[in-house]
Design a protein around this nucleic acid. Structure first.
Length: 269
DNA sequence: ATGGCGTATGGAATACGA
């Protein structure tokens, strides 16, 4: 029986293209569970063999052709796999599993929230409307019984909620991911389930904290115009178990990188 | 200079990301 759990969440931006750095992460960080988003891979083409060769025998996938897609791979057995559809769009944006930690089931939700397009107006922009509707469904679902159990919610939530989750609060107030309509709804989702923003437990609110840097910057690290779009939330019954979180910024500079960095969360019961 | 790039699809040019 294990009483420790190391979990990584990572928007991989094509799992097939990125297997070399996924394997590097698994070897160097050795997580128990890896939650991936934007796999961009139909289930039939998911690189299961490579994960199994790396010791990750337990694989739960919810993929589709070309876009979106989430996967949770694990060294520990996974049970009660659930793939929830939001907004009746047929999109692959969620998968949940249970792992056993210290004899208890821990629910792990893996999300890829819609990006929302460019124009932050639901009247003019269907993608932004979809994003808001998606978050409203999350708010209605991720409360009560869903959060009464030990649970972790991770993924690319595509919202940078706080001032120091973006490189310039003032310049991003009208940019999708940091508009007040999104950040307020995001907080309402989190609070409706009494979820803990674990990353901000370990990094003070006044300190800049990013998980994503655009591909377009000439020198992403020097410009450092990042946003915290990836998150680790912990339900109330699991709050005492979260011991640390860390953004693996270095991975943003690896060979053929994703534009998101992995986030590690360590639990001990 | 928050898009200057990158990915999937399909086999060139377009959609999408955030």
């Amino acid at each position: 029986m294990t009483n420790r759990l190391k979990l990584v969440t990572w928007n991989i931006n094509s799992v097939r293209l990125r297997m070399p750095i996924v394997e590097r992460l698994l070897a160097e960080v050795q997580p128990d569970v890896l939650c991936l988003q934007e796999t961009k891979c139909p289930d039939a083409n998911f690189p299961e063999k490579a994960f199994k060769a790396a010791g990750y025998d337990h694989i739960a996938i919810n993929g589709q052709k070309g876009y979106h897609g989430v996967a949770t791979v694990s060294r520990l057995p996974l049970s009660n796999v659930e793939k929830r559809e939001f907004c009746q769009m047929g999109d692959s944006r969620h998968i949940a599993v249970d792992v056993e930690l210290a004899g208890q089931a821990v629910r792990i939700h893996n999300f890829y929230v819609p990006a929302g397009g460019d124009e932050p107006d639901p009247e003019k922009n269907d993608k932004f409307d979809h994003k808001l509707k998606f978050m409203n469904e999350m708010k209605d679902w991720l409360t009560g019984p869903e959060t009464a159990k030990p649970a972790v919610l991770v993924g690319d939530l595509n919202v940078a909620p706080y001032e120091h989750d973006v490189w310039s609060h003032k310049q991003l107030l009208k940019v999708v991911s940091h508009t007040p309509i999104e950040t307020e709804l995001f907080e309402a989702v989190r609070e409706s389930g009494n979820w803990l923003d674990a990353m901000r437990q370990f990094t003070p609110m006044e300190e800049k904290l990013y998980t994503w840097w655009s591909y377009r910057a000439k020198d992403w690290s020097k410009a450092d115009k990042g946003r915290r779009l990836d998150h680790v939330w912990v339900s109330d019954p699991l709050k005492s178990a979260i011991k640390s979180t860390e953004v693996l910024r270095d991975a943003r500079g690896w060979e053929k990188p994703s534009d998101h960095a992995p986030v590690v969360a360590d639990f001990e019961m």
